[in-house]
Design a protein around this nucleic acid. Structure first.
Lengths: 237, 237
DNA sequence: CGTAAATTTGACCCCAATCAAAGACTGTGG
DNA sequence: CCACAGTCTTTGATTGGGGTCAAATTTACG
């Protein structure tokens, strides 16, 4: 159980300046209901990045200079245990925000690492503060983000921290699939860190689900899943 | 494992109208940095209640008509599992706020139940909204509350959801003691629901700690605790 | 093609869940 | 004041799930 942030191709690539007005996920994004006038208040550049799996958006304790909206991919928020281990406390998906605490000037409480390839917008703290002072819209949005963060945190505790290992894995997959039949999965070590079980147990359970045809591996870590059967597992033991 | 909200003397007693200006915990409370002018904006009454152990401040799904600041005592936020069981997702202490989601008009996500006798102020949603429109101060405070809620949630996951039963109990006690030597404890069933272990295991561990003199029961559920020894337990197995 | 990393599987054992029952405590009514 | 019922805590006996240590196998990558 080492798992400092991986080194393998751990790169972040600048992709250009974001055009918020025309952003494809505007409805779900932080700047959702800004008015045209509000956009005039953004003077600092908002950079658009791609982040490779294993690379970090920011580290715990970093200078909280910006927050990040996830536009595509999957991000894990990691906290380190006194014992040296790590625990994943949340998974962020498109539309979610990483590093909200930066808007309050608080130090980052987690390390944010890409699990899947991630496309993200980096919004400097100064932009948030300027907008916060000038427009109510952003207040609302920020508050909603916090609300969602708490809901996610509670769901982690209740859904992923309760029941047998099999049930937890089933619930995790259902969460990732989000109703769809196919879903992208990730490394067993991360699965364990999310569910509070060991890497070996995570592997055992996933392997067994594959054998029972509840999961079909289309390509490495891309699964087609038997939603109905998994839902049954998710409740019982 | 029944545990609907208890009936035993489950009463909430009205205690009077709160005088926010002179509130003893103003510095830590939601209305911390309101100006004298801001107070003029409060037109609805803010009621002060005492809530007996086992009684609820509000229930999941209730009309979100108000939020509550905890002035003294201990409150648990409960979520119910599909299996009928329950899980405590957070413990609120003096200075904390219950039902923050009401400020957003969202339905309550938990049931809030007093564990120790609680003194609380009920702040109607309308008051929050009026103040939110008029003053920046409250925005700041609300945001801080959300931030704190997320931190607590994460701490629950990392500190109380990891390690052996002994370690979890030790960490819970240290959290409750908050540096002091003495602390109030509570029922084993709740201890189990906080830590994700069974009532029996909770009891066994607590009983053993008492035998080993790491805990001394001054009176029912009031402990004097060996902080150093507990800290050692909290890390090890 | 060869080395390193990740996944899978095996064997063993221990912690905590489970089922069950015996004390301790609280409040009630006789 | 005491007896009794109900609840909570404690303890016991048993079992199974998952942790741990270790090795085999597959996958990824230079």
């Amino acid at each position: 159980m080492d798992m400092t942030v991986k080194k393998t191709g751990a790169t972040a690539a600048w992709r250009g300046l974001a055009n918020c007005r025309g952003c494809g996920i505007r409805e779900t994004a932080l700047f959702a209901d800004l008015t045209e006038a509000d956009f005039g208040l953004i003077h600092l550049p908002i950079d658009e990045f791609t982040v490779a799996p294993g690379a970090a958006l920011y580290h715990v304790g970093d200078e909280p200079s910006a927050l990040y909206t996830v536009r595509s991919g999957l991000v894990k928020l990691v906290q380190y245990l006194p014992t040296g281990g790590q625990r994943i406390v949340r998974l962020l998906r498109p539309g979610d925000t990483a590093g909200l605490e930066a808007a309050l000037g608080e130090p980052y409480r987690h390390t944010a690492v890409a699990i899947h390839p991630v496309l993200t917008c980096r919004i400097p703290r100064a932009v948030i503060q300027r907008l916060s002072d000038e427009t109510q819209h952003l207040h609302q949005q920020l508050m909603r983000r916090w609300h969602r963060a708490v809901e996610r945190a509670d769901a982690f505790l209740v859904e992923l921290g309760t029941g047998s290992a099999r049930a937890r894995v089933a619930r995790l997959i259902l969460t990732l699939a989000d109703g769809r039949e196919e879903c992208d999965f990730f490394g067993r070590e991360d699965v364990g860190a999310v569910l509070g079980i060991t890497t070996e147990t995570a592997s055992r359970v996933v392997a067994e689900l594959k054998r029972q045809d509840l999961l079909t591996e289309l390509r490495p870590n891309r699964f087609r899943c038997d939603v109905a059967a998994l839902r049954a597992l998710a409740e019982g033991p």
